[in-house]
């Protein structure tokens, strides 16, 4: 890093091209004689030709949908009519005065907090466990990761069976405790906790494996020094493990929040947002408004709200949480 900084300070960058070290003077770039510029012109074209496919791909499939969605959020359109009527911000006003949408926002927050906090804690705990020298460790690691690679449809079907109050696998587990299995997916009280459990099961394995990779890269010498100074396991965990894992935690926190906001497949299969609207989260609300109610305007407005929320949360995390991340 120091040598790169020094090179940058001198206005010089180094790199390799075709195995030969090349050096270019930044201050001289873009200048030169007209003849030299003419010689470089094909190089720019070549550069543009190389980046064009990816650039177009990102533009068409990432940015254009967001821009077009922003436009749709200002219209009244049933997804079949040839014309879209501009209605300004009316869709946003409708959403923020709709009790169902406000309830959806509350449920989304409960779901996201439940999934993110739960899966991060369980993932870290699982990783700490898998980091021990246990018999059958590799098998257990594979099993822990397996739910992450299953499709949402398979997970939904599996958990519908597990949660079945009459025949489900959870029933005999609760019976010895004198408890009966509640009607998980047909009860407004239990459906959202049930979905959070399913998503915890789905995402914990992935988080555990990423944490495990982080744990295995921690420097042993720090632990040895701290142990020599008399630090106990809890102190080692709190003062060394957690701070050194903070880049991993930061990455997982960001990605888990985004994926929890976008959770859709299991909800679609298990509850369809019900009973009532008790498991309607933002992503289901958007789908329901757009494709079931044929109301593209309100769906697009809700999607823009979700987009802004995610961007804002990511920016806030980058601004405030990243300060506490210890990059080695």
């Amino acid at each position: 890093m120091a040598s790169l900084d020094a090179a940058t300070a001198r206005g010089t960058t180094k790199g390799t091209r075709g195995g030969t070290t090349v050096e270019s003077t930044r201050s001289g770039r873009g200048r030169g004689t007209p003849a030299r510029r003419r010689r470089r012109y094909p190089e720019y074209l070549l550069f543009l030709a190389f980046i064009a496919p990816n650039f177009l791909f990102v533009l068409v499939f990432a940015y254009w949908p967001v821009i077009y969605n922003g436009y749709l959020s200002l219209t009244d359109w049933n997804m079949l009519a040839p014309t879209k009527d501009l209605v300004g911000l009316a869709n946003y006003r409708d959403l923020f005065t709709d009790p169902d949408f406000l309830a959806t926002l509350r449920q989304t927050v409960v779901f996201v907090v439940g999934v993110v906090v739960g899966s991060m804690v369980l993932g870290l705990a699982t990783a700490l466990l898998l980091n021990q020298r246990l018999v059958g460790r590799r098998f257990v690691r594979t099993m822990a990761f397996a739910p992450h690679v299953l499709s949402g449809a398979a997970i939904g079907t599996l958990w519908l069976f597990i949660f079945d109050p009459n025949y489900g696998l959870i029933r005999p587990l609760l019976a010895p405790l004198g408890l009966t299995s509640p009607p998980w997916m047909t009860s407004s009280r239990w459906a959202l906790p049930g979905l959070i459990i399913v998503y915890l099961w789905k995402s914990t394995g992935f988080i555990a494996i990423v944490y495990l990779a982080g744990l295995q890269n921690l420097p042993r010498d720090l632990y040895e020094s701290a142990a020599l100074d008399g630090a106990g396991s809890w102190r080692l965990f709190r003062k060394i493990t957690l701070p050194l894992l903070s880049p991993v935690t930061f990455f997982l926190f960001l990605t888990t929040i985004i994926s929890a906001f976008q959770a859709f497949d299991v909800i679609a299969l298990m509850t369809e947002g019900g009973p009532g609207t008790s498991t309607t989260t933002l992503s289901w609300f958007i789908y329901q408004r757009a494709f079931v109610a044929s109301d593209a305007g309100h769906a697009a407005a809700a999607a823009m709200i979700m987009f802004v929320l995610l961007v804002a949360m990511t920016a806030l995390q980058a601004r405030f949480l990243e300060r506490r991340v210890h990059y080695r």
């Binding site: 009607p183 047909t186 009860s187 407004s188 009280r189 019900g274 009973p275 009532g276 609207t277």
Partner: peptide, 11 residues
């Protein structure tokens, strides 16, 4: 959706 509220929540 209304019926579900009646059937599951005793609304």
């Amino acid at each position: 959706t209304g019926l579900q509220k009646i059937w599951s929540d005793n609304a």
